[in-house]
């Protein structure tokens, strides 16, 4: 019975894909050489001094769409992410108050791996934070930077063990605090235009509201207005959220070993 269900559902999916292939033109490239109208409009308006009411002041297309044109989508996406993290914490909330054994000695991996990992962790932090700071100019941005930053606690826990990471001050409480603080800042950026008499999620000036975040730095480097701030806060919020999840996984693992 299960085999039949599996076969039928797999066949349905493959048939749908094949149908899409036929519609798109079988065995041809999936994308047309000409740009679609929607993409063309985004590219035309995203950093255009001539169209003051439509510009996002960001030369990077994906950041402009993520945090300006379709900002509410991204806000809800962020909510799904934090909802999932909160759900994960709720499943294991009894472990939040438990203390894993404080070992005086560092176990973890060998001396060589530890010496090299120090430098890797340092470089990872620089690259991750740089993603967040320059997301409006070059590809990258808050989510990518945050996910890259989350590699750091994983490396710390794997290479140096969780006890050492805790001694460095990396606890789930601090990570939760980081996440909550930057989420609050994110929401503040979103509602600031509303307080100033504009619209929610407003970035540059719109008809009926002249409020706009600073679009350019002093030397006219694009800041993307609120895009810069939102990328930055998203970076630390996502990093905090993933750190909580990984620390919790590590705590569960270390307690299971102790049994």
């Amino acid at each position: 019975m299960t085999g039949l269900v599996a076969a039928v559902s797999i066949l349905i999916v493959l048939f749908a894909l094949a149908y899409g292939l036929v519609v798109l033109g079988i065995s041809g490239p999936p994308a047309p050489a000409k740009l679609r109208l929607l993409g063309e409009k985004y590219l035309y308006y995203m950093i255009n001094p001539a169209t003051k009411y439509f510009t996002a002041e960001s030369p990077e297309g994906v950041s402009a769409i993520l945090w300006d044109y379709r900002g509410l989508d991204t806000l809800y996406e962020t909510m799904v992410l934090f909802g999932a993290i909160i759900g994960a914490i709720l499943v294991y909330r009894e472990y939040l108050h438990s203390e894993p054994g404080k070992t005086g000695k560092i176990y973890g991996l060998s001396l060589i791996v530890r010496a090299v990992s120090k430098i890797i962790i340092w470089l990872t932090i620089i690259i991750a934070v740089a993603f967040g700071f320059t997301g409006q100019i070059t590809p990258g941005g808050g989510f990518v930077g945050g996910a890259a930053f989350a590699v750091v606690p994983v490396l710390l826990a794997l290479v140096y063990t969780l006890g050492y990471a805790r001694r460095l001050g990396l606890t789930h409480r601090r990570a939760l605090l980081l996440r909550a603080t930057f989420l609050l800042l994110l929401v503040l950026v979103i509602i600031t235009p509303l307080i100033a008499g504009g619209y929610v999620f407003q970035n540059q000036a719109k008809p009926g509201s002249s409020f706009s975040f600073p679009g350019r730095f002093i030397d006219s480097t694009p800041l993307g207005g609120s895009i810069f701030l939102l990328n930055l806060f998203e970076l630390f919020a996502v990093a905090g959220a993933f750190t909580v999840a990984f620390i919790l996984l590590g705590v569960i693992a270390s307690l299971k070993e102790g049994d």
């Binding site: 994308a31 740009l35 679609r36 929607l38 993409g39 985004y42 590219l43 297309g61 994906v62 402009a64 769409i65 993520l66 379709r70 989508d73 991204t74 996406e77 941005g141 989510f143 990518v144």
Partner: peptide
Amino acid sequence: SVDPLPPTLTIT
């Protein structure tokens, strides 16, 4: 330029 919308959907 390539279409910026599919990469945006991908990141979401």
